[in-house]
């Protein structure tokens, strides 16, 4: 099975934030995958989506299913993560006060993605950040 689709996500588009993850959830549910397994992917895609909305200049989420692997890739247009090690620390956040008041910026985004995926890879430069998460289909 080779399937892929991608969804554009825009900076500060809080109104639609979550809809890409909702599409992903619907799609994986249609495939008949285990709900607990879907939950892990959806938590990760939600965090990836919110990171693009809050921190980036815009980007996209891409879902690929290759053989028995699900690969979720988050690609944004920058400005990049200055200190990836810090960004991976639970509770560390660079989110603004305004964003925190909305309930974001818990500093759990990347840690949640790492925790909920089988494989976590991240690359970042001022030109953009790519996070690649993968799972073996349970």
């Amino acid at each position: 099975m080779n399937i892929d689709f991608e969804i554009n996500i825009y900076h500060e588009d809080y109104h639609n934030a979550g809809s890409a993850s909702s599409e992903i959830k619907k799609y994986l549910t249609q495939l008949g995958l285990n709900p607990k397994f879907i939950r892990k992917i959806v938590i990760s895609s939600y965090e990836a989506e919110m990171n693009i909305v809050i921190h980036s200049l815009g980007g996209k989420l891409k879902l690929d299913i290759i053989g028995n692997h699900i690969i979720l890739t988050s690609i944004d247009k920058g400005p990049g993560i200055r200190d990836i090690k810090m960004a991976l620390t639970e509770g560390f956040s660079t989110a603004s006060k305004k964003v925190r008041e909305m309930g974001f910026g818990a500093g759990m985004g990347l840690p949640n993605m790492k925790k909920n995926s089988d494989k976590f890879e991240i690359k970042s430069s001022p030109k953009g950040t790519i996070v690649r998460l993968s799972w073996v289909i349970e």
């Binding site: 809080y14 109104h15 934030a17 979550g18 809809s19 993850s21 909702s22 959830k25 709900p35 939950r39 959806v42 939600y46 919110m50 909305m102 309930g103 974001f104």
Partner: peptide, 21 residues
Amino acid sequence: ENNAWCTVLTHVNIVAVSALL
């Protein structure tokens, strides 16, 4: 799933969280 979520957050993203979970 099926929890009732008590919160004081009210902006639009709470709907996405509720729907996803």
